[in-house]
Design a protein around this nucleic acid. Sequence first.
DNA 1: TGAGTGACCTACTTTTTGGTAAGTTATTTT
DNA 2: AAAATAACTTACCAAAAAGTAGGTCACTCA
Lengths: 121, 121
Amino acid sequence: MIQLNDKKYTCPIDFSLSFIDGKWKILILSHLHYCSNRSYSDFCNNLPGVSEKMLSQQLKELERDKLIIKTILSKKPYRVEYALTEFGKTLTPLYQFLSDWGIQYLKQNGIDYIKDQHLYK
Amino acid sequence: MIQLNDKKYTCPIDFSLSFIDGKWKILILSHLHYCSNRSYSDFCNNLPGVSEKMLSQQLKELERDKLIIKTILSKKPYRVEYALTEFGKTLTPLYQFLSDWGIQYLKQNGIDYIKDQHLYK
DNA sequence: TGAGTGACCTACTTTTTGGTAAGTTATTTT
DNA sequence: AAAATAACTTACCAAAAAGTAGGTCACTCA
């Protein structure tokens, strides 16, 4: 049993998971991995199905955990930008693996995501 | 939007996640990765905090998704054994990455899991 | 013979999660 | 001047997930 900041983890994997479980988290992170800088509404428009409630909740937690950083571009008309931190980038192999793994499975089931990517919005 | 077996996925990552999200799934899989063959009670004893209800539920889903396979060792005194399938083994980079990533983070926070592993049950 | 073990299942309840829809502030566009 | 956009927040509620505690069947061990 590993203990850190009042929380307990059964093993390192359990610990790692604590950063990334939560609906939308990996999707948000990988989105940033592929697009680097995104606004709040970029997420709204590109993650089909997220409610704003969930989105801001997850963004807040990711920020708290230092995986992403929010930059305030302007205050008067409030504009922001989200990006992966260096720490968030250390999860790159994860984004890549999950993507590759999924693509390969799909291919074996007759869906060529790479080839048909233009079909997907 | 990707469609497969009546379900929709926003991207390959979303699709991959559908196999592994669910409390305990990654933990069960990685457990099998490190120990190869495990009985039902092995899981009970080595995943601190799982309820039997959750355990059998997750095992069932993992089996359905062909990530693990259950072998019935004997019927009369009912004994079984769980193991990763070849397909389940294709997730090996995931188990490894999540483990390494966690260990490294912990180390940077003053917890040397490798060195202190004997302390953890 | 009675207790314990292994591999579960089931009903019931509680907790957590997530959806819905509306509201806020300040600006830009029409 | 009205509508739309950006970036959120909030309250309320339904649904889903997970905990609890019990039960089953068939051994095996003391």
